[in-house]
Structures are given as C-alpha cells and as structure tokens.
Amino acid sequence: MIAAQSRYRLILALSLSVAFTAMLSLLTGSQAIPLLQALRQSFDGESGVYGLILTELRLPRTLVALLAGASLGLGGALMQSLLRNPLASPGLVGSASGAALGAVVTLYFGLAGMFALALPIGGIVGALLATLMVYLLAGRDAGILTLILAGVAVNAFALALVSLLLNLAPSPYAVQEIALWMLGSLANVSRNELWILLPGTLAGWLMAWRQGRALDLLTFGEETAASMGADLPRLRQRLFLAVALTVGSAVSVTGAIGFIGLVVPHLLRPLVGYQPSRLLIPSALGGALLLLTADIVVRLLPAQGEIKVGVVTSLIGAPFFLWLILQGKRRVT
C-alpha cells in the first residue's frame, strides 16, 4: 500500500515538474514575450508577433522536446529491462544510427532541400530498416548477447555509411549541414516537425503499453519468464518496433541526442524499487523533463549561435556514464 502511494507520488512530482518546465520553455528565448498578451493574440486569431512566436516557434519546440525526451527515456527503460542490462541504451537496436543514416542520405542527395519532410521521413525509414536488420540478423529466438552483438554491428555499419557520405559530400556547405544536424538540436522545429513526430511516437508508446508485466518476469531470466507465461519472441518483436518508431521519430526530428535514454532510467530505478514495469512511466516523464531542461539551458547560454542540445546532454551524460562504471566497479570489489 505504502509502496503504491510513493509510486504515484513520484509520477505526480515528475508530471508537475514537466508541466512547470514546459511553461518555462514557452517563456524562454531571445525575445521576451508577455505571456498573457501572446495567449490573447493566438486565441483571438489576431496576427501579432507575440502570438506567432508562441504558437509557431515556442509551442512546437516545447512539445517536440517533451515528446522526444519522453520517447528517449521510455526507450531506455524498455531496452534496459529487455536486455536485463543497466548500460543498454535505446540506440542499441539500431534505431538511432539508422535514423541518422536515413536523414543524412536525404541531406546528401539534396532531397531535404527539395521538400521539408524528406529529412524526418528518411530518418524514420532508416530507423525501421536498421532495427529490422538487427532483428533479422539476431533471429527470432535470439539470446541477449546475440541481440547486443547484432545491434553493435548494425550501428557500426550505419555510422560508417554516415562517415562515408560526409567524406564524399559535394560541398563544404553540405558537410556543415550534415555535421550540425548530427549534433542534435530543437532550434529549428516547427509545427511540421511536430506532425511528423507525433504518429510514430504515439504508435510506439501504444505498443510498449502493457508489456510491463513481461518485463517484470524477465527479472527472473528468460527461461523462468517463459515458464511464467511471458511470450518472449512477441515481446522482443513489439519492443523493437516500439523503440524503432519512437526513437526513430525523435532522432529524425531532433538529430542525435545522447545519454537521455541511458541516464534517466538508471537514475529513477532505485526510486521505483528496481521493478521494470514501474520504471516505464517515470522514465518517460524524466526523459521529457531532462530534454526540456537541456533545451532551456542552451537558449540561456551566451554563445554565438546556439550550443546544440545534443552536445549539452552528451556533455552531462558522458561523465555520468563514467561514474556509473566506477560505481559498478566499487560494488563488485
């Protein structure tokens, strides 16, 4: 009973923080906007610069940060629970590098310049293809190690192809465009990106929904989980597709944003008593919170142009990762 209460308290606290940070995100930017006036302008339909900034720039940016962050956090929690490994990240099944490759292909061949949606669509297709490759390489009944190895191989290959395209890029301008996109940023998102992000994200979330129990059972190992009624091939299939859709959509719109999927579930796990099913919703909220916060930070940093949000999350994430390893080492010895 007490455990259940504290669980809802955590979800409530995280939800309130997300709501508060989202409000803050609406108010943050190079142009200070009076919120009431902006709201009045956007609701009354009168054209005013404040209303436009709010509805065309700040709101899409905030919502994309929220959805993409939630997908990364949830994807991390799903993968770590599926692979029974706290160091697994959502990119492990190929979705992130596949999305990067797909997006870079559209940039390289100039498709992205021809019509705006080519880039995110290319990213999602890339994510799905890469995940499918991992899935086919590993086989339907693969063990965890085979899955991880197949993921590593496909990731390496996708990133090699990205490097090749950078290498062969026709102009320095194209190189810069690709490189900057790879850093991960929410600066240029508009409503179009939001509409691109939404369907895959929601479909993926729906698929992950109700898989919590099976992930709980996996705590006992694959064979025991199977004997307790978990349908592991189906679980694996669903989660792969869910992560490909959610993380693929997120990466396609924002570029590569590292470490959220790794760090957030790991931080929250002790707070939910290490139970995989109870980690899912808090991880999604935590991911949204972290990406929103990072995106506010980059807007406040005094810099020429804007520091990319993917750089900030990795700058925080990498030392944290190191700290995790050191902690683990201490626990073993």
């Binding site: 996996l218 705590t219 190992g221 064979e223 290490y274 995989p276």
Partner: peptide, 10 residues
C-alpha cells in the same frame, strides 16, 4: 531453474 539469476536488486 537450477540457477536463479535475478537481474535487478529488487
């Protein structure tokens, strides 16, 4: 099973 490997410190 013969060996119980519990993944998380629950």
């Amino acid at each position: 099973p013969q060996l119980s490997e519990i993944a998380w410190p629950m």
